[in-house]
């Protein structure tokens, strides 16, 4: 009953995605809870560069093979399933990034074991693994239990702070090069760099929305810096777009985009219904406004009554000093 906890690393072009560290942080807690070991499963080709930050885990199982160089889900899933079949982990944690999206389901399907989607919390309760998952776009949290070992858990992004799973040293590493590679009918052809056109704000996970409270075009820079340290983008209320300070594609609201980022910071936005219509579904809403009566505080989760030129730079600075260099690039 004391198999290890596995975290399957999410890699994109040879770089670890933040979601991996988040999963490692959660996996660490679970391993302590169970009195067992945490192992990170790293699948790829020529992987040594990424090992140096996984020290929160007890060990890394480094599976290297040319066939694993490209993110073809069925190939990776088969390798994970085979390894699990011989090493008997108790739980396999898979961060739900676009790279690893199919993996959890495929591994569970191949092994015929339970899979739990969109987990936010995992722990041992009465000899059973209990998972908290979010359903219906975050409107409901459900608790499920599974006794089966292994069980597979998909983790929503942001389950833990990245810094909790990040270390500046490598753990013990076991290299596995003998793998059972399945033939595949899916072939990576090439990567396409983001197109030059403007970003699609409905796909951003972090948005800093600016309103008329920003006052001048030059002040936009302050919000852009905040968006940068958070790995997000800026968008605006209609008057800001009307001014030509941001392109039309950045307008949020009834006549613009409907956005549901994980984080929406409304800076100097009053919260007119036409604006709120486009952002009320955001995961976490933080409003900064100099008017304590501004309606935006009725939709925000956290509010600050202040001048945005005072708060935004301070926030940018505070975030900068907390996060590690360069990590947010692939947030």
């Amino acid at each position: 009953m004391s198999g290890n906890i596995w975290v399957v690393a999410a890699l994109c072009r040879g770089r670890l995605l933040d979601a991996t560290y988040e999963a490692v942080a959660l996996g660490r807690e679970l391993a302590e809870n169970l009195g067992t070991k945490l192992e990170v499963l790293l699948l790829g080709h020529e992987l040594k560069d990424v090992l140096g930050t996984l020290g929160i885990a007890d060990a890394v199982l480094c599976v290297e093979h040319a066939a694993l160089a490209d993110p073809v889900p069925e190939v990776h899933a088969h390798v994970v399933a085979r390894l699990a079949g011989t090493r008997h982990p108790q739980a396999i944690l898979v961060p739900q990034t676009n790279v690893t999206w199919e993996l959890g389901s495929l591994v569970a399907g191949e092994l015929g074991v339970p899979y739990v989607n969109s987990c936010t919390e995992l722990r041992m309760v009465e000899q059973t693994l209990e998972a908290h998952t979010v359903l219906y776009g975050g409107k409901v949290e459900a608790i499920v239990r599974t006794k089966h070992a292994p069980s597979i858990f998909g983790l929503v992004s942001g389950v833990r702070a990245v810094e909790k799973g990040y270390a500046d040293h490598a753990p013990a590493t076991e290299r596995i090069t003998e793998v059972d590679v399945q033939p595949t009918s899916v072939q990576l052809r090439r990567y396409l760099e983001p197109e030059a056109g403007d970003i699609d704000i409905s796909k951003e996970e972090v948005l800093v929305g600016v309103g008329r409270g920003i006052e001048t075009r030059d002040n936009l820079e302050v919000s852009k810096e905040l968006a940068d340290v958070l790995g997000g983008a800026i968008c605006g209320s209609r008057p800001v777009i009307d001014q030509g300070w941001l392109p039309l594609s950045r307008q949020v609201g009834k006549s613009g985009a409907t956005v549901k980022p994980k984080l929406y910071i409304a800076a100097g936005i009053s919260g007119a219904p036409e604006h709120v219509e486009g952002m009320k579904g955001s995961g976490l809403i933080i409003a900064i406004n100099s008017d304590p009566q501004a309606p935006i505080f009725q939709v925000a989760h956290y509010g600050i009554v202040a001048k945005l030129l005072d708060v935004l730079p301070a926030l940018t600075e505070a975030i900068r000093s907390r996060s590690r260099r360069g990590m947010k690039q692939y947030a």
Binding site: R238, D242, L248, Q251, K254, S255, G256
Partner: peptide
């Protein structure tokens, strides 16, 4: 009422 951005464009 629902063509604000269309008109603006």
């Amino acid at each position: 009422m629902w063509l604000d951005t269309y008109y603006k464009a």
